[in-house]
Design a protein around this nucleic acid. Sequence first.
DNA 1: AAAACATACCTTGAAATCCGATGCATTGAT
DNA 2: ATCAATGCATCGGATTTCAAGGTATGTTTT
Lengths: 110, 110
Amino acid sequence: MRTSELYKGSLESLVLQLIGKQGEMYGYELTQRAKELSAGNLNITEGTLYPLLHKLESEGKLKSVVRPYGNRTRKYYSLTPEGKHAQAQASERIQAFIEQLQQFLNPKLA
Amino acid sequence: MRTSELYKGSLESLVLQLIGKQGEMYGYELTQRAKELSAGNLNITEGTLYPLLHKLESEGKLKSVVRPYGNRTRKYYSLTPEGKHAQAQASERIQAFIEQLQQFLNPKLA
DNA sequence: AAAACATACCTTGAAATCCGATGCATTGAT
DNA sequence: ATCAATGCATCGGATTTCAAGGTATGTTTT
């Protein structure tokens, strides 16, 4: 098993975190930043990322703006007010999750 | 979204942890212990747990013994040598995962 | 200058994972 | 007696994720 398996289920929350901290990010940038912060363990594939971004946008949590970068286009995503709320909640959930994982590693005896 | 979403991808590692710490556990006990340690957030459903236990057994990581408890039967699972190895690796992966999650919450600027 | 790699968007089909519902049986509480 | 909890299990479907493929530009290497 790979460490990356553990990230399943966390992707949406982490994407909201990244965009929230950064202000706005485009897809490819997200994949690179995720790889950095995870010490190479989280490689978000395009088949995962783009449908997720589209879903979050359709849910009203993200908004996007396409801007040219040289001859390329980048599609920048940022949080809507609803997305900011979701991001704040995600942050709390992740913190609680971390504490709970530590309980599993070092459990208080029942 | 629920906190429980975050646990997706961690179930196998956490089950190995629980059984490893405890020595041997039966299915229902696992669901209760997981709920305890996760402050109620991780409710492993039977449709998830039993197939997972069967898979881990077929992979040679768990072995089971059925023992009566009153008029009921409990199926106790414990780690094989291979399972102990997997559990040790899972422990390290979870620790690394925790550190990486913290990076996402409080990233070092790029 | 050709090839290879990185950047940048996307879709599609399949695999894997997980949940809800259901089934059966015993025990304990109301 | 009925309901909740304990204890095992399976099944179908939903969701999530991945691998592969498609298109195109920019950069580096040979």
